[in-house]
């Protein structure tokens, strides 16, 4: 490479390198900096310790650990429901005609392109005590159900909002799958369940992993869905961070963001390690 070309390459990546350093790397440093300092910027473990130790005066349980576990629980449930509902849909889509596949793709993308605030808001009006669902239920003489403000309502919101993020990656992997492999498995004596377990699912693992991360990460960190469909001020970890931000407790907000980030990084590294061979998609080739 001549000096000239090298200089040109340098000029091309310089703006992005500076941008990434200033606005991706440095801000993450500030999360750690705020997390480990007090209001006068003196070093402290207090914020991190508070997350793990602060207990509720009434019940004596650990407030923030409880909040985190609830976030984890609801996010895992929502992700599992998205996977269970989305996986068959992705498979059926690949079996449809090219034109039907295209139409279904657009149909899945339309709700995704509508702002998630509006999507969540729509469910709020459906699930309200005076909402449409209860209107239908009482019209049928089934009595009213109190759904809004419960964990189930939050799960419904998460599943609805993030469902497309599960279907699209699985579908795009399945669409590339060689259908001859399924036929071969059938010819060699596999029944339907065996084909699914031994051929279809192993081949679609990269899509599943992609879909799971794309649903799990936004649902574990959401705060709007839980504010609109759930109840209470500090319902999920996202609510807790947002609440501390609004209260201008930036150091404690940073500490919670830092802990969440570390947990997610460890979890993702673990997933990568367990599924083997670095990046998603490479593991399935072997």
């Amino acid at each position: 490479m001549s000096g000239n070309t090298r200089r040109r390459t340098g000029a091309l990546i310089a703006p992005y390198s500076i941008w990434a350093l200033l606005f991706i790397a440095v801000p993450l440093f500030f999360v750690a900096y705020y997390a480990f300092t007090d209001n006068s910027f003196g070093f402290t473990f207090g914020n991190i310790a508070r997350f793990f130790t602060e207990t509720s005066r009434e019940t004596g349980s650990r407030i923030y650990i409880d909040i985190f576990m609830r976030s984890l629980k609801l996010a895992v449930i929502s992700t599992a429901i998205c996977l269970l509902l989305g996986y068959p849909l992705a498979y059926f889509m690949t079996r449809a005609s090219a034109k039907a596949q295209k139409i279904m793709m657009v149909l899945i993308m339309i709700p995704m392109w509508m702002n998630f605030l509006i999507r969540t808001y729509a469910w709020m009006t459906i699930l309200q005590d005076t909402g449409i669902l209860n209107g239908i239920l009482s019209g049928l003489g089934l009595g009213k159900m109190h759904i809004i403000g419960t964990e189930s309502a939050v799960v419904v919101g998460m599943v609805y909002d993030y469902f497309p993020y599960m279907v699209l990656p699985i579908y795009s992997i399945m669409a590339k799958m060689d259908y001859k492999l399924i036929e071969a498995a059938r010819d060699l004596g596999c029944n339907g369940a065996q084909v699914l377990r031994r051929v279809i699912i192993p081949l679609s693992i990269p899509g599943i992993l992609n879909g799971v991360t794309m649903v799990l990460i936004p649902s574990i960190s959401t705060f709007y869905i839980s504010q609109k469909l759930g109840n209470g001020r500090f319902f999920l970890i996202g609510d807790a961070i947002e609440g501390q931000y609004v209260a201008n407790n930036l150091h404690f907000a940073a500490a919670m963001a830092f802990i969440l980030m570390v947990i997610l990084l460890v979890a993702m590294a673990l997933i990568k390690y367990l599924t083997g061979r670095g990046k998603y998609g490479e593991g399935a080739k072997a």
């Binding site: 936004p218 960190s221 996202g238 940073a254 969440l260 980030m261």
Partner: peptide, 10 residues
């Protein structure tokens, strides 16, 4: 890969 809330907070 980072959740939006962390990008925003940072």
């Amino acid at each position: 890969t980072n959740p939006d809330i962390i990008t925003g907070i940072s």
